Simulated assay, not measured.
Amino acid sequence: MTPEIALYVAAGALAGGLINGLAGFGTALFALGFFLNVMPPVQAVAVVVVLSALTGVQGLWVVRHAIRANTRRLARFLLPGLLGIPIGVLILSVLDARSLKLVIAGLLILYGGYFSLRAQLPRFERPTPIWDMIVGFSGGVLGGAASLSGALPMMWCTLRPWPKSETRAVLQPFNVTVLTLTAAALALQGAYTRETLIYLALALPLSIGAAQIGIAVFKRLTDTGFRRLLIAMTLVSGAVLLLKELA
């Protein structure tokens, strides 16, 4: 591993871990921009899903009470998401990953830009179980295809009037579960070569440490501040993905 490669891997691990600790998701959105400079898509996704799952476990403890209190809500997202994982893994093997990332980047910029400019955020008060399941399934597909399982659930959860702990109680376990199973599927396909494991050995401790900093910041945020942060993250994430793919 050259010093340049090590620098990209370390930077991606720190950025991804920090945002995962802060928001309960987002490792791929912030880490892939670094990893794809030095890794092919399948290898980059294989590294990111492990980092996302293992750093996310720390955040589960923070919202454990909210998870137990909202298990039915989580199930509406998670069970359809599990069905979407094998479809996403298949897409990763046959579809141009660049096209997928451009579509996601466009959606993130459109959504984040629009709601960043609105003084009052919309709030869908009534239950929407069908839409929750559709969003969960789509997140599972994106998780298997590009380790982007949190993008659409994040966008949807910012429209709900849930406190920050309840929002994270959906996003964090959803991502940890989807990406853990995605990692297992990629392992069965032989994605974890010796080189990939070396990258993981460098990235994992950095990502876990950065996640602890993110968790500390999360505890200080208000509910409104947390929602605003998620929306700002969609805009920044979309811009980072778009600039990376068009560069």
Rank of each mutant, 00 (worst) to 15 (best):
P163F: 02
A201W: 02
L202E: 00
T158V: 15
V178H: 02
T182L: 13
E195S: 14
L197V: 11
A185D: 14
L197N: 13
Q189D: 12
A201Q: 05
A187T: 04
L179I: 10
A191Y: 02
V178L: 08
L188W: 13
K164I: 09
F174H: 08
A203T: 12
T158R: 07
F174K: 10
T196Q: 05
C157D: 12
L186G: 10
E195G: 14
Y192Q: 03
W156R: 12
L188N: 11
L186F: 09
L204Q: 01
A183H: 03
Q172F: 03
L188K: 13
L202R: 01
L171E: 00
N175Q: 14
L181I: 10
T193K: 06
L181M: 14
E195M: 12
L159Y: 08
V176W: 06
A211D: 10
V170P: 02
C157S: 15
T196D: 00
L197I: 06
T196K: 04
Q172D: 11
A187F: 06
P205T: 08
G190D: 11
Q189K: 15
L200F: 08
T196W: 04
L202A: 01
L181R: 08
A183W: 01
M154A: 15
A191D: 07
A183C: 06
T193N: 05
V170Q: 07
F174G: 08
I198W: 14
R160W: 05
V170R: 01
I208A: 05
E195C: 02
P161Q: 02
A210Y: 04
G209P: 10
G209W: 01
K164G: 08
V170M: 13
L206E: 06
T177K: 00
T180G: 13
A191V: 07
T182N: 06
A210E: 10
A183E: 00
L206Q: 06
Y192C: 10
K164L: 10
A183L: 09
V170F: 02
P153W: 01
N175F: 06
T193L: 04
A187E: 02
A201R: 13
C157W: 01
W162S: 10
Q172V: 08
S165G: 04
G209I: 01
W162A: 00
I198D: 14
A184I: 15
N175L: 03
F174V: 05
S207W: 06
A201D: 11
A169E: 08
A183I: 05
G190N: 07
P161I: 05
L200W: 09
I208F: 14
T158N: 07
G190F: 07
T167I: 15
I208K: 03
W156E: 08
I208E: 06
S207C: 07
L171W: 05
C157T: 15
L188I: 12
A183T: 09
R160Y: 01
P163T: 10
T180S: 15
P173I: 06
T167A: 03
G209H: 03
P163D: 13
F174M: 05
V178K: 02
L197G: 12
V178P: 00
L186E: 13
T177F: 04
A201N: 07
W156K: 09
V170K: 03
L202Y: 04
